[in-house]
Write a protein that binds this DNA or RNA. Structure first.
Lengths: 223, 223
DNA sequence: ATTAATATACTGGAAAACCAGTAGAAAAAA
DNA sequence: TTTTTTCTACTGGTTTTCCAGTATATTAAT
C-alpha cells in the first residue's frame, strides 16, 4: 500500500514531489526530519544547511518549494533570515521551526512572511500536512503554536481598564497629538479638566506619561 | 463502507463528517455552497441561516464544528458576529466568507478569532480543504486573501521616513514610556543627545509631540 | 431616595518636553 | 581620500506635562 509511487486520487494528486530545504544548526534534528519525511513520496528533501550564510548562497543559484527554517541559527537570527530569503526568492514558502514557542519571535516571523510555524515535537503527519499546506500557498500553524499566539493576544487585550466615554474621547484626541489646550477648546471645557482626565487615564492604564498611554491605547485598539 | 460507524485508518481517518453551519443572507450562495459540499462525504451541512440573530439562537442549543460566516449580514456585522459566536461557543471554527476582500475587515475578523477566510469564488476543492483544515484547528487563508493582506501590510509600512538605527532604537525606548533621562542612562549618552534624537524623530515624522510620534510608530509597526 | 460613579474645575509647584541654533567626532559612502 | 551621514553634545529659553490634593454638579445605579 505504501510502495506505490503513482497513486492519483481526485483531490490530492501528487505531481512532482515538493522540494524541501532543511535549515537547522542541530544535525540531529536534520536527520530526524529527513527520516520522518523519507517515508513520504510527496516530499523530497533536496539538501540541508546548518547556518544562514550557506543557505542564502545556495538560494542564489537554486530554488526549492519549501524551507524548514530553524529559528535559532548561529550566524543570522530567524526573523532576519525570513526577510533575506523572501527578498531573494519571494515565492518560497518558509515554515518556521523551533523547540520552544516564544510569542514575540513567532509574531515577528509571521510579520516577515513565514507561511507556517511548527514546534519540533510535531508528528510526521503534522509535518507533512504543514509542508503540503504551505506549498499550496496556505498557512499552517500547529495547534500549540496557535494557543501560544492566542495567549499573547489575549494578554494584550486583557485587563483593559474600562474607560468612561469622556475618557475614551479624550484619549483619542491625545493620541491624535492634540495638546491639552486644543482639546479643551474643542470640547468647550477647561484645560484643567482635560488635565484631570489625562491623569485619570494614566492612572487607570498604570503608566506615568502620555507616551506609554498612547502606545498602550493604540496597541490595544482602544482608539 | 460509509455505513460502518467505526473505521479507523492510519492517517486520514474520517470519523463522523464535519458538521457545518452556513450563515449568509444570500440564498443563492447558500444553495451553491450546499451543492458544492454535497459531493463530499466528509462534510455535512447541518443547516443554514440568513441572519445573525437566528444563528446565535441556534447556537444556544446546538453546536457545529465549522461555521461558514458571511461578512455582510443584515442585522449584525461579521466582525461582531465572530466575537459573539466565540463568546458562546469558543471551540467552533469560523471560516469567514466574502465576495470582496476588504483588508481592514479581514484583519479585524482574524483578530477576533476567525480560523480562516475564503472568497466566494473559491473552488470546491479549496472550500473542502479550508473546512477540513480549520476543523483540525489549523488556519486557512486563500492565496488571494493573503495577497490582499500582504498589500495592506506593505501599504502600512510604506512612506515611512527612513530612521537611522540609533533613532529607531530611541524611538522604541520612547514608546516604552521611558523618559529622556532614563534613555540617556541606558545608552550611556547625554540626555541632551537623546533630546536631539527625539527632535529629529519628530521632524522626520512631521509631528510636534511625542504622542503623535508614538502613535504613528506603533501604527506603522516601526517598533 | 440614597449611594456611587462620572464629569467638571481649581491651586501650586516640580519635572520634563519642546524649540532653535550650533558644532565636533565617528562612521559610512562616494 | 574626501564627502556625507550619523551620532554626539551644548546653551538658553518657553511650554507642557506631571503630581498631589480638593471639590461640586450631574448622572446612573441600587
Amino acid at each position: 500500500m505504501k510502495a506505490q509511487p503513482l497513486t492519483y486520487t481526485s483531490t490530492s494528486m501528487q505531481h512532482k514531489p515538493i522540494s524541501v530545504l532543511i535549515v537547522d544548526d542541530h544535525p540531529m534534528v536534520i536527520e530526524g526530519l529527513k527520516t520522518l519525511l523519507s517515508d513520504n513520496p510527496r516530499v523530497a528533501v533536496k539538501t540541508h544547511f546548518t547556518n544562514g550564510k550557506d543557505t542564502l548562497e545556495f538560494l542564489e543559484k537554486q530554488i526549492v518549494d519549501v524551507i524548514l527554517l530553524d529559528v535559532n541559527l548561529p550566524d543570522i537570527n530567524g526573523v532576519e533570515m525570513v526577510k533575506l530569503i523572501l527578498n531573494k526568492r519571494a515565492t518560497i514558502k518558509i515554515l518556521g521551526l523551533s523547540t520552544y514557542s516564544e510569542p514575540s519571535i513567532i509574531n515577528q516571523m509571521i510579520k516577515n512572511g513565514v507561511k507556517g510555524y511548527l514546534l519540533k515535537n510535531a508528528t510526521a503527519d503534522e509535518l507533512v500536512n504543514a509542508i503540503s499546506q504551505v506549498d499550496q500557498g496556505n498557512f499552517y500553524f500547529g495547534t500549540e503554536v496557535q494557543k501560544i499566539l492566542a495567549d499573547s493576544v489575549s494578554q494584550e487585550s486583557k485587563d483593559i481598564p474600562k474607560l468612561t466615554r469622556r475618557e475614551t474621547h479624550i484619549l483619542r484626541l491625545i493620541a491624535d497629538g492634540k495638546t491639552t489646550n486644543t482639546i479643551a477648546e474643542e470640547l468647550f471645557i477647561s484645560p484643567l479638566t482635560v488635565e484631570t482626565h489625562r491623569r485619570n487615564l494614566m492612572q487607570k492604564m498604570e503608566v506615568s506619561n502620555a507616551a506609554s498611554l498612547i502606545k498602550i491605547a493604540v496597541e490595544k485598539k482602544l482608539i
